[in-house]
């Protein structure tokens, strides 16, 4: 068995003075990274805002072609997965590595489900011809501005889906490490910061969902 000081410094990298400094650095690092991500998405949200103001009616038409139920189910899936990730962080803090792994794996699987539903939606858009450019088939007033809506829709949800994909892989790997007992109540930063990342991906969707799916409902 380890003596207590070995447990207290397990996972400590040499350039940190102690575990507390390492944990605080990891957490701050992830927050700074998320600020970067916010600015990255921010450019797209700015574009969305400008064009929605300029072409509001076209945005309503575009929104009517969203699959409301699939979007809503996906929102619920992501919210629940975030809850599981929060539970995983709690589990690892109290030393339950196995529970932590299970929570993370379920959350990861929910991410896969999200992507699958998103894929079904994309497919439907293709079939319907709601794809800007040569494949465009929708007969709607002001087709150009509606195409712009779909262009922004595909870029924003595509970028988000890319982040979900990264998150799915991340949670799976961290879950695997947890299952192998790599973490302890003293050293669990990877679980914590991956959790922060997943919550961020969730929050981006929380904004995308009303902005893309619910405009038509607001009008009704």
């Amino acid at each position: 068995m380890h003596d207590s000081s070995a447990v207290a410094t397990h996972g400590l990298r040499h350039h940190f003075a102690d575990m507390e400094q390492q944990r605080a650095s990891a957490t701050l690092g992830m927050w700074v990274f998320l600020v970067t991500e916010i600015m990255f998405f921010g450019g797209l949200f700015a574009a969305y805002l400008v064009y929605r103001t300029a072409h509001y009616d076209a945005w309503v038409i575009g929104s009517e072609h969203m699959n409301f139920w699939l979007g809503t189910i996906n929102t619920v899936i992501l919210l629940c997965s975030s809850l599981l990730v929060a539970l995983a962080v709690h589990a690892v803090q109290v030393g339950q590595n196995r529970m932590c792994a299970i929570y993370l794996w379920i959350a990861s699987a929910m991410g896969v489900a999200f992507l699958a539903l998103k894929g079904i939606e994309y497919h439907a858009h293709f079939v319907e011809g709601a794809v800007p450019g040569a494949l465009w088939k929708l007969a709607v007033p002001d087709p150009r501005a509606v195409q712009m809506f779909f262009y922004i829709y595909f870029v924003m949800t595509g970028l988000h889906a890319l982040h979900v994909t990264i998150g799915v892989a991340l949670l799976a790997v961290i879950g695997w490490h947890a299952a192998r007992g790599r973490y302890s109540p003293v050293y669990y930063s990877p679980v914590h910061v991956s959790g922060l990342y997943w919550h961020f991906v969730d929050v981006v969707w929380i904004f995308l969902y009303p902005l893309l799916y619910l405009i038509a409902h607001k009008k009704a």
């Binding site: 064009y51 300029a54 800007p132 262009y151």
Partner: peptide
Amino acid sequence: FHMGIFDPRLGGD
């Protein structure tokens, strides 16, 4: 894609 967010043909700016 020969079209995009800054493309005036789609109402872009």
